[in-house]
């Protein structure tokens, strides 16, 4: 890495003593970050394992119960529902890949007004998630603007309680997330395509290739690397970063139809009396899932630097 080659710079001490003295010299620089990391990551993670084996009556009364919380998790009805609800959000990744690459390929032609399109399409990504959630929750109510528009355009049969229906609500949320993330996907793909040499497309056009052929044969293969990064990022988001959408749009309801894992943990920890230990047990499982995913993330980090 870039660190090599620095050895020749400093004064001529013997290797080992230099390294020891530099290790001491580095300490004050590293200390603030290490303290914060200890408080926010290391110590809480140790506490998490302790809490997952406790029944938390209140914060000063937490009797040890062994693996009881994990056992109860496996007989809990809502826990598998929560996991399923997270999985129901995953189609968003496919939509983002398809729409994002298509839009990026169109914008890549830099037709008249393409910077305008680009600016507008990116706009939702800069809006705060809670703002997006609240705005859509008001637009999608039974007498909200979407149903008004549908009824006015003769599509009354489509009128629905978009967030109040146990079978659709989670898909409505998926569409809202897609709306918010599409600009990001398009931007990533477009940045990649803009670096593809123009001659490739021109040569294909001369050979009589249609727009679709150049899209499928030139653009898509070029996007493979960045698409892998996008897939992993969005899968992470959809499995563990959707709390704000759920909190502002449905609060996990109706019933438990939009209670994702994060919301299950939140409800169990703070609203179900004495179940903070159960919530911690779910967190422990999430912790291991995240731990296992580190090599995937690291490999992508390598791919991103290429």
């Amino acid at each position: 890495m870039a660190v090599t080659g620095r050895t020749t710079n400093s004064s001529q001490k013997s290797g080992i003593s230099r390294q020891v003295s530099e290790s001491f010299a580095a300490c004050p620089f590293l200390l603030p970050t290490l303290i914060v990391t200890f408080i926010v990551y290391l110590y809480p993670m140790i506490q998490l394992f302790v809490l997952s084996q406790r029944r938390v009556v209140n914060i000063s009364n937490m009797p040890y119960v062994g693996l009881e919380n994990f056992r109860r998790l496996f007989v809990n009805d809502i826990f598998p529902t929560a996991i399923t609800n997270n999985l129901k959000l995953l189609p968003a990744v496919a939509i983002l890949l398809a729409l994002g690459s298509f839009l990026a390929a169109l914008l890549n032609e830099q037709m008249r007004g393409w910077t305008f399109y680009r600016a507008i399409i990116f706009l939702p990504y800069i809006l705060p998630v809670p703002v997006v959630g609240i705005a859509f929750s008001q637009m999608l109510t039974r007498n909200g603007v979407l149903n008004t528009l549908l009824a006015a355009s003769g599509l009354s049969f489509l009128v629905n309680d978009w967030l109040g229906n146990t079978s659709y609500a989670i898909f409505t949320i998926m569409v809202v997330i897609t709306w918010k993330e599409l600009g990001f996907a398009t931007m990533l793909f477009l940045a990649r395509l803009l670096s593809v040499p123009r001659e490739l497309y021109e040569a294909a056009a001369i050979d009589g290739a249609s727009w679709w052929q150049s899209f499928l044969r030139i653009s898509l293969p070029e996007l493979r690397g960045i698409a892998a990064i996008l897939i992993v990022l969005e899968v992470f988001n959809l499995l563990s970063w959707v709390f704000s959408y759920i909190y502002t749009m449905t609060a996990g309801g109706p019933g438990y139809s939009t209670t994702v894992l994060e919301f299950f943990i939140y409800r169990a920890a703070f609203f179900w009396s004495g179940e903070l230990g159960l919530a911690s047990a779910v967190c422990v499982m999430l912790f291991f899932a995240a731990l296992v995913s580190i090599p995937v993330r690291n490999r992508l980090g390598g791919a991103a630097n290429e």
């Binding site: 926010v40 809480p44 938390v56 563990s240 994060e262 943990i265 967190c283 999430l286 731990l291």
Partner: peptide, 15 residues
């Protein structure tokens, strides 16, 4: 950065 915020939030709340 792979660890979801909720995983940290529960023990941090108790702490």
């Amino acid at each position: 950065l792979v660890f979801p915020t909720i995983v940290l939030a529960i023990p941090l709340f108790v702490i």
